Amino acid sequence: MLRLPSCAAIALALTLAACNGEQAPPPEAPLAGSTIGGDFELTSESGDTVNWSDFDGQYRIVYFGYAYCPDICPTDVQRAMAGLRQFEQDNPALGAQIQPLFVSIDPERDTQEVVAEFTDAFHPRLIGLTGTPEQIEQAASAFKVFYARGEDQPGGGYLMDHSNITYLFGPDGEPIATLPTDQGADAVATELALWVR
């Protein structure tokens, strides 16, 4: 007598076949294959010499800005670090693998002390980096960051013109994606969850 398999048996067989089949590959990183990033030698807020390779094995969030920025830099950094905090709460082990970095484009004013005060306001693990004008120029060039001193302001001081991109790099220093700081902390946390594994 011929017996037909039950619906439950068919469903189980299909489920097992799907589990044993090939899984869809992860999406390709938006910045995969680009030449963004590279080695640098800068000075940390604590006075240590820092190289890009010092962070090998860690994901890296990188933002170039300046501490005296009146609006864009603190807004971008605040949103990026709030997104990182959300990601850390949801994924403590993965969050610990991300090193956030703030690189000054204004070495004339951004001393170690000034950079430390700026970064401490946003995240306890955010490391501020500064250096000589030549070191900053080399690092900015490697990371495809534009910056220039703006006009002097009434009452003293000056602004800096610069690109405001928040990069995410992988453990080998490879560029992965930009973080959507313009969309807020939730969007940043979502983007981190997509790539940090």
Results as ranks from 00 to 15, higher is better:
Tyr63Thr: 07
Asp71Thr: 09
Asn20Pro: 00
Glu28Thr: 08
Leu12Cys: 13
Ala185Thr: 03
Leu16Phe: 13
Glu88Ile: 04
Pro5Trp: 15
Pro30Leu: 01
Ile165Asp: 15
Arg149Glu: 13
Phe146Met: 06
Asp186His: 04
Gln138Trp: 03
Thr75Pro: 11
Glu191Ser: 05
Ala189Lys: 08
Lys144Trp: 08
Asn51Pro: 01
Gly21Cys: 10
Gly95Trp: 05
Ser163Glu: 01
Gln153Ser: 00
Glu41Ile: 06
Asp48Phe: 00
Asp56Tyr: 07
Ser141Asn: 14
Thr178Phe: 13
Ala67Asn: 06
Gly95Tyr: 06
Leu2Gln: 11
Gly150Leu: 03
Gly21Phe: 08
Leu94Tyr: 05
Thr181Tyr: 10
Pro171Gln: 14
Cys73Val: 05
His162Thr: 07
Gln153His: 08
Ala32Glu: 14
His162Ser: 07
Leu31Lys: 09
Trp195Ile: 08
Ser44Ile: 03
Gln23Cys: 00
Leu94Asn: 01
Leu12Arg: 12
Glu174Asn: 15
Glu28Asp: 13
Ile127Lys: 02
Gln183Glu: 15
Asp110Ser: 02
Arg79Ala: 13
Thr119Ile: 09
Glu191Gly: 05
Gly33Lys: 08
Gly156Lys: 04
Leu84Asn: 09
Leu194Ala: 11
Ala142Cys: 05
Tyr68Thr: 10
Leu179Tyr: 10
Ala13Thr: 08
Asp54Tyr: 04
Leu2Asn: 13
Asp186Ser: 05
